[in-house]
Simulated assay, not measured.
Amino acid sequence: MAKPTTAGQRRIIAGADPVTGRLRGTEAQLAALVRLRLAFRHPRPPHAYFLTPAGHRVREEPVEAVPETAPVEVPSGVFTPRTGTEQEPPGEDGPARAREVRSAWLGIVEMRRMTNPGGDRTIPCAWERTHRVRAVAIALEAAGRVPAGPGREGYRVVDTAQPDAVEVGEASAEGTRACGAVLERAGWLVSEHGDARTGRRYVLVSPRRA
């Protein structure tokens, strides 16, 4: 379980730049957030500190006024993208889940800016290329697509034998094409295919390169 943050640390997180997630504070304060995995230090000068996806999630949580010495609990657990292949029913689709998904997507966009050449936010970054199923699922859910589940139709994201591609599909051809359009806007290469035996339509998705 994650260690609790202090009220002072929560104020530093809340004061991060709303677009880039850049943090301001003393070296000791920022190093402490790095140890909590809520921030990272950019390897290039001026070696600024930025929120990680977990830090973005903490910033999204409502915080009540507390004394400086009182600990504030960091939400437990790790964000899990929904691929539509889960055997168990998904959790609640309420405001808390929406905040988690939004923070995860913002974290990906920030990783693109920090790690892609020229800060290019329009193409997948190295993390997305090595976590394709998770990255594609986050992009779909962040755009409002619904994952499949027990008794519910929606998208499914599965890995393929191709080294760079994942497969995405919905029960209807229209839904599948809508998923493909979402992923194209998110910087992925998409090609539509069909299964001659079943007539099922699906898209193959791979990371676009500059």
Rank of each mutant, 00 (worst) to 15 (best):
A186M: 07
R209Y: 13
P53K: 03
A2C: 01
N116H: 09
N116C: 06
T85W: 00
N116P: 04
G187A: 05
S76Q: 15
G144S: 05
G149N: 02
L36K: 14
Q162P: 00
A96D: 14
G25Q: 02
E167V: 10
P46S: 10
R112M: 05
R185N: 11
L183M: 07
D120V: 12
T20F: 05
H56T: 06
G151H: 01
R97G: 10
V166I: 04
R113I: 10
R22E: 11
R82A: 06
R99D: 13
T160F: 05
A165K: 10
R134P: 08
D159C: 08
R209N: 11
F79K: 08
T83H: 04
W105L: 09
H131D: 05
R121K: 11
V203H: 01
E110A: 15
R10Q: 11
S206W: 08
T69C: 07
T160Q: 02
P67V: 09
A165F: 04
E61C: 09
E73T: 14
P46H: 10
E86M: 06
A161V: 15
N116Q: 08
Q162K: 11
V190P: 03
P147G: 04
W188S: 04
D17C: 07
L38I: 02
P75C: 06
V109N: 05
A161K: 14
R201I: 13
R185E: 14
R208W: 10
A104K: 02
C125E: 15
P117F: 09
E174S: 11
G94I: 05
R35I: 01
G107Y: 02
V205T: 06
P207G: 09
G169C: 10
A126W: 10
L189V: 13
R201W: 10
I138D: 01
P62R: 12
A186L: 04
T122W: 04
G55C: 02
Y155E: 04
M1Q: 12
G199H: 08
V166M: 00
A142W: 03
E100N: 11
Y202S: 07
A139M: 03
R22W: 04
A173K: 14
A31C: 06
P46Y: 08
R11N: 09
R57M: 13
P62D: 03
A181G: 08
S76M: 11
P67S: 12
R102Q: 12
T6W: 07
S172V: 00
A16G: 02
R41G: 00
V78H: 12
E174F: 08
E141Q: 12
E184P: 07
V63F: 11
V166Q: 03
V168K: 03
H56K: 11
A161G: 14
A39H: 03
T26Q: 02
R37V: 03
P43S: 06
R22Q: 12
E68R: 15
R152S: 06
V101E: 01
V203I: 12
R41C: 00
E174P: 01
D120M: 09
A171T: 15
R177C: 08
P46C: 07
A161W: 14
A178F: 04
R97V: 07
